[in-house]
């Protein structure tokens, strides 16, 4: 138990303070593309400095340390309750050490639990894996960008979006436009086509675990991912909504079967601080941290 708590606490520290290299790379590329002297470039410069400052001082990249969503892979027949407990203890420890802000509030009483535990928190999704050891991917997603995430039901007459890929593209770009800078652009979008409402938003969020250079091997979805990024960057919203070329760092899409009556498109908008970290625990002395999520791999379809 103790080694699990320690490993999970360290995972939270890494997720909160060390932005994955693939995301940094995209931000740096955006910085180089913005005009010297522009508000956009100045904003990206501060963002790049902040990423370094957070990493070197081991402080949270953003004070909103977000909803903590855990994707945990375990071998079959592994009891999950001890893992839940270890995650809860790690969450409390990480809050005490200021890697997490006390961030869970009772919506009825308005009381902050103070330790990031609460009804439904942290979020934990279990899956089985056919290899030994526990593998966990952690995603921290703040409230500003969660507030601009969106779900559409096609056809959407107001937006002229039908039940086809052109309709999907239209509503995804609409969501990015509607967000302006409020989701802390430049952002990343996870897209789920189909499913029911609950499935769609969960799958869209899980897409955010994928690495930036990862293009879907499904030809149609892969093309859509590239097209959405190119189109969004022609909107001119720019970093923080200051105007500029860098509006979207990446788009990751998946699909789920739908009912004949429903056609949902779910868009999970993530801020530039796409905080994720992964760990594999195969024994007390065999703990490996990584910036590559395992649970994202099954989403190439």
């Amino acid at each position: 138990m103790k080694h699990l708590v320690e490993a999970f606490t360290e995972l939270i520290r890494r997720a909160s303070t060390d932005l994955p290299r693939d995301v940094c790379e995209r931000i740096r590329r955006g910085y180089e593309e913005e005009k010297p002297g522009s508000n956009a470039r100045a904003a990206l410069e501060i963002i790049l400095r902040n990423i370094e400052d957070a990493r070197s001082t081991s402080a949270p990249i953003c004070q909103d340390t977000g909803t903590n969503t855990w994707y945990v892979g375990v071998p079959e027949r592994t009891p999950t309750e001890p893992i839940r407990k270890a995650i809860a203890r790690a969450t409390v420890a990480a809050t005490k050490r200021c890697y997490l802000r006390p961030n869970t509030m009772d919506p009825v009483t308005g009381v902050n639990s103070g330790d990031n535990l609460g009804i439904g928190h942290p979020v934990i999704h279990f899956r089985t894996r056919n290899r030994p050891g526990i593998q966990a991917d952690l995603l921290l997603k703040g409230g500003g960008c969660e507030n601009v995430s969106a779900q559409y039901s096609l056809p959407d007459e107001r937006l002229g979006a039908g039940r086809n890929l052109a309709g999907v593209r239209a509503v995804v770009l609409h969501a990015i436009h509607r967000a302006q800078g409020r989701g802390c652009a430049p952002g990343i979008v996870g897209i789920a086509i189909g499913g029911d409402r609950a499935q769609g938003l969960a799958a869209a969020k899980e897409q955010l675990l994928r690495l930036m250079p990862d293009v879907n091997t499904d030809h149609v979805l892969g093309e859509m991912e590239n097209d959405v990024v190119a189109a969004a960057n022609r909107l001119g919203i720019g970093p923080m909504g200051f105007g500029g070329r860098t509006t979207l760092l990446g788009a990751k899409a998946t699909r789920l079967h739908r009912l004949p009556a429903s056609f949902f498109v779910s868009v999970a908008y993530m801020c530039w601080a796409c905080r994720r970290a992964s760990v594999t625990i195969a024994g007390k002395r065999n703990i490996r941290f990584s910036q590559i999520a395992e649970s994202a791999r099954r989403y190439h379809r």
Partner: peptide
Amino acid sequence: VGGAAVTL
């Protein structure tokens, strides 16, 4: 700048 919590 949103998210630049440490630098700010």
